[in-house]
């Protein structure tokens, strides 16, 4: 285990209990920072617009990402396509704080993810079950998030992914040690990662919720289900009052068990993003990369 990987996992630990917000301009990045984002995700189009536009979706213009890096003092993340290690090299070259190898963009490789152990810069990856999470960690991811269903404003998929992951962790925790070998085989992951989960009742890296979070209640729901923090994509800047909604989500993540505070925070937030029912969409981004 090299030092940089430890430092990268530790940066994710510093983001815990926080909200990471998608932004497309330096102005939005400043609003996100002022509203209490613990990091921003710089991208050209938010997932809802990517979904609406269709076509091929790629890494953002490095100049646009630099503009956002210069606008804020909090960590800046950016997305590259699954398997597109040259996009990742570019993001490392501009000293991004975290790369999201993301199913929101069009996959560049339908078989292989990036070998993230070859990079000094940290990676976060999406997962919809424990096997995916541990496979990404084995490839070098230092942070995991649920995939959810980005750009929908529908929380159902993120809830499903978090529950599936928590259930699998609970099952492994309760297994006899001689059963772990077969579990490693079943999930196609190395034995030592299964053993870590068995001994610690958690992933070896920080686990955030992402995909479909649109309200303070959604964020608190994911926290109560075991998320260590929340990504909010389209939910903020596609809503009526981004600043107020962003602030409210940040506070709801801090006090996620305080229903009376969340009730107050949920008042007068204006129009939420319209949203698409995850049952009604044709493109399930969560099915990209397994």
């Amino acid at each position: 285990m090299n030092r940089q990987y430890e430092l990268n996992k530790e940066l994710a630990q510093m983001l815990k209990g926080g909200v990471i917000m998608d932004v497309t301009t330096p102005e939005q990045a400043k609003i996100a920072e002022a509203s209490g984002a613990c990091a921003v995700m710089a991208l050209e189009r938010i997932p809802a617009d990517i979904r609406a536009a269709g076509g091929v979706s790629r890494m953002s213009d490095p100049k646009m990402i630099r503009g956002i890096q210069n606008a804020v003092s909090i960590p800046v993340m950016a997305k590259c396509r699954i398997g597109h290690f040259v996009e990742a090299q570019i993001l490392e070259a501009i000293e991004i704080d975290y790369i999201d190898e993301s199913e929101v963009l069009s996959p560049a490789d339908d078989l292989y993810h990036i070998d993230k152990t070859k990079f000094r810069v940290p990676f976060v990856c999406g997962a919809k079950d424990l096997g995916e999470a541990l496979r990404r960690i084995n490839e070098g991811a230092s942070m995991i998030r649920t995939k959810g269903e980005p750009g929908t404003g529908d929380i159902v998929q993120a809830v499903r992914h978090m529950r599936i992951m928590r259930r699998a962790i609970a099952q492994i925790t309760s297994m006899r040690e001689d059963e772990l070998f077969d579990e490693a085989k079943r999930l196609c992951v190395p034995y030592d990662l299964i053993q870590y989960v068995h001994d610690n009742q958690k992933l070896p890296v920080v686990n955030f919720a992402a995909g479909g979070v649109a309200t303070p209640a959604d964020a608190a729901l994911m926290m109560q289900l075991g998320a260590e923090g929340v990504f909010v994509g389209s939910g903020i800047f596609n809503s009526g009052n981004p600043e107020k909604r962003a602030s409210a989500i940040v506070k709801a993540v801090t006090n996620y068990t305080d229903a009376s505070m969340i009730a107050e925070l949920s008042e007068d937030l204006g129009e939420a993003m319209v949203g698409i029912n995850a049952e009604e969409i044709e493109l399930l981004m969560a099915e990209r990369g397994k």
């Binding site: 630990q13 926080g18 920072e33 002022a34 209490g36 960590p75 602030s247 506070k251 801090t254």
Partner: peptide
């Protein structure tokens, strides 16, 4: 603790 000081400072104020 460690974390993002901008976030912690804002929350200390607003809470």
């Amino acid at each position: 603790p460690g974390g993002e000081s901008t976030v912690q400072g804002k929350l200390l104020r607003e809470l």
